[in-house]
């Protein structure tokens, strides 16, 4: 599968990354190289295998649905890391009009 500059621009858009033209060219070359390497997965004989997404042999981890208070200082320190705040909330740009 050949990857074009347009593909890279599309991937960058999906991933919310901004690339210069020079970077687009560079990533096309590099990502094409990596994809060529991982393409040999196609020759693995795994048609009858199931897929493994996680390793822990735990099915459900249940706990009571109760509010656990968070240390006040830690909460304040966490909120302090936000770019914009409105009181005890993090302020974000409007996504839907």
């Amino acid at each position: 599968m050949k990857i074009s500059n347009k593909d890279i621009e599309h991937l960058a858009h999906l991933a919310r990354l901004e690339l210069t033209d020079k970077e687009t060219n560079q990533y096309r070359r590099e990502i094409s190289g990596i994809v060529r390497y991982v393409d040999h997965l196609a020759s693995a004989n795994v048609d009858r295998q199931t897929a493994t997404a996680r390793l822990s042999k735990i099915d459900n981890v249940l706990r009571p649905d109760s509010v656990a208070p968070w240390d006040n200082d830690e909460r304040a320190a966490a909120l302090k890391q936000a770019t914009r705040r409105s009181g005890k909330y993090i302020s974000v740009p409007r996504v839907l009009e």
């Binding site: 890279i8 990533y27 994809v35 991982v38 997965l41 196609a42 897929a51 493994t52 997404a53």
Partner: peptide
Amino acid sequence: RRIMLGTYCLSAGYYDAYYLRAQKVRT
């Protein structure tokens, strides 16, 4: 590079060839 590669492997049309297949190799 890794974010874009991952976005590629997970995108519609490539998911089965890459991500799903990789998880089968993992098994």
